[in-house]
Design a protein around this nucleic acid. Structure first.
Lengths: 205, 205, 205, 205
DNA sequence: GATGAATGAGACTTCATTCAT
DNA sequence: CATGAATGAAGTCTCATTCAT
């Protein structure tokens, strides 16, 4: 159908926009460049999207949705709540490891892109933290870990992960992002007083 | 003398720039607005600073220097390396608690301000992480904590702190940033396997 | 088609720019004024030309090309090399006589327009002198005139012409530029030791 | 006296201005740069001169006066009117040969510097041409050369000289400007129908 | 007399957005 | 649907000139 073609075009524009925003940041990326990179014209872009803001916002949405899918998928394979949270982090890490463009866009450029996006970014961060928190809470409920301020713990986990990824994006060290996780994981586990879980149970997937 | 007046004016411009950048971010802040906010004219700003970039960079420098001063000061009151690192974090938290403008500028806007600043930001992050790491290393050496990957641990501490502050900047919850530290601290300590140190020894200052 | 419209608009911008540069010189002419004079907006000008420099340069090119066309055309009607050179000078004079704007642009403003154009202007002068020289050389070869330093002679002819035109542009005397040629021509001819050629053979066209 | 100091300061500013204008042209030279080059401050420059225009104009005047002095001096050594005119040209050539900065300022930058200077430049050119003309007229009166349009002849001589000098300024070829005169001189002489004068009588000085 | 801080008009250029073709 | 020409607001930066110190 025509609708398919339209959808495909939109996808191509979003893909191009991701690359351009990732390279230049929101303000320094021009609609012209996005149009060029997507093989369309400026008019074409404006046919599919009402404004540059909206492209950015949709990209943010798409990124969040993809990450959440990955996370849910990864968590589904575990029952233990700590293992679930742990798997979630690893899933995020792996996704960014494969898509450095996405990582730069989401980790580095998004927060300072402009006031108009900050509410959304705050929400997004909260959502991710909420996922972690949910399972930490469950762990507390099930007596796996001692009670603690799970809100702050979730924030701390998220922040630690964020920092490791950002550092990787900016400096590209270590080569593979996943390597760091071997060192990060025990820190996180100990921080909430969780017993070590055999990594093997996590990395099977 | 004239030199004093000049210095004072430069300070006023930097102060104004901090507020404007904090409100709008680098790109959305105009030199005109900085000039207005500092009670000068556009030409006046350009008399004291060669470009908008340089203002931003000097602001970054100034912020880093101030934070490092606070940190050194705080650390000087402790001998135990863990307590030193711990005190450093608290000092940072308190500084931002008092200067929300500075927090927003440094935590939210700076990273995504543009490619031209990212190398500097990466360095800055590395510097702060290095301070933490140094004392974690000392703690390992003195047998206070078990050996661990202190580089990643430092990054994780920094990231956790960063996230807590950023969350506070964006949502302004909790009211006082320092409150969170009561919950954050044990997490960090446990994460490196450190025994609890009585908070009282820290908060005396 | 659209391409035609685009071309036409470019021409209109160049025409307007010629007038404005001729009136004010390169530096004192503003892009705004060129835009206004061409019935476009500033953005419109920048859609068709990447910078003010480029407009100026294209104008220079266009002027040179037009003059060279006139010259070739005029020379084609003569066989005698001296007559050819002579006809070339007359063609240049007549062109400027009809287009005082062009004359002012090319003779008065161009040289001092800025360092970035001086190499081009030097080349241009050399090209015109080369045309004259070529035919003086031919005249020497054919024994029409005695051997002489044709490079300097060509430069001198060009300079004499240039000065006469510049004087006319600045003072607008005599009314018609071509009139001066009656007095200038014998000087030039004698300077290279050429016999007088009947003017009638030249002015038929 | 103080007046001497003031005069000296003015001279230093004018000298500096000559260099800067020669390098950059009128518009691209800044008062700041002139101040710097003259070892003064911007305020200092404005104490001695009311505006940038006036500096330029005084420089023009000074240059003209110096050239005229050289010319008068050179002409005083000859009685024959043709020899006088001839000596004048050579004097100009030699002056510029020694002061390339002056040459660039006066030959290349001055004409296109801006509308405000063009009347003055036109006058100046006319003055120089008038000197030449005067002696050509005398030569006609004394029966040394046949009657001719001395106004145009003077213009042509001036133009030929101008072009040779300008070419030298732009391309710096030949190494020494004076060399060219050996080739240029006979052309000029023949152009007015003058017999060759032994160069030896000219170059003694 | 001299300095350099300050002003403000104006320059070039960019770019999101609109719209005729 | 798509193109690319056009607009106009806004932004960074320059600089001649003025003036308090």
């Amino acid at each position: 159908m025509q609708q398919d073609r339209s959808r495909a075009r939109q996808q191509r524009i979003l893909d191009a926009a991701l690359r351009v925003f990732s390279r230049k940041g929101y303000r320094d990326a021009s609609v012209d460049e996005i149009a060029g990179e997507s093989g369309t014209s400026k008019g074409g872009v404006y046919f599919h999207f009402p404004s540059k803001d909206v492209i950015y916002l949709q990209l943010l949405d798409r990124t969040v949705a993809r990450l959440q899918d990955k996370i849910e998928e990864a968590m589904a394979e575990h029952d233990d709540p700590i293992a679930k949270a742990d798997a979630a982090l690893l899933a995020v890490l792996r996704t960014f490891d494969k898509h450095a463009t996405l990582a730069r866009f989401f980790m580095v450029e998004a927060l300072g892109a402009g006031r108009q996006f900050q509410r959304r970014m705050a929400e997004t961060r909260a959502e991710f933290a909420a996922i972690i928190r949910e399972h930490l809470d469950a762990a507390v409920d099930q007596g796996i870990i001692d009670p603690l301020d799970t809100e702050v713990a979730a924030q701390a986990w998220f922040g630690a992960l964020y920092e490791v990824i950002t550092g990787w994006v900016l400096v590209r060290k270590p080569e593979r992002l996943e390597e760091t996780y071997a060192a990060l994981r025990p820190l996180l586990m100990r921080s909430v007083g969780a017993e070590e879980i055999r990594l093997s149970t996590l990395i099977k997937s």
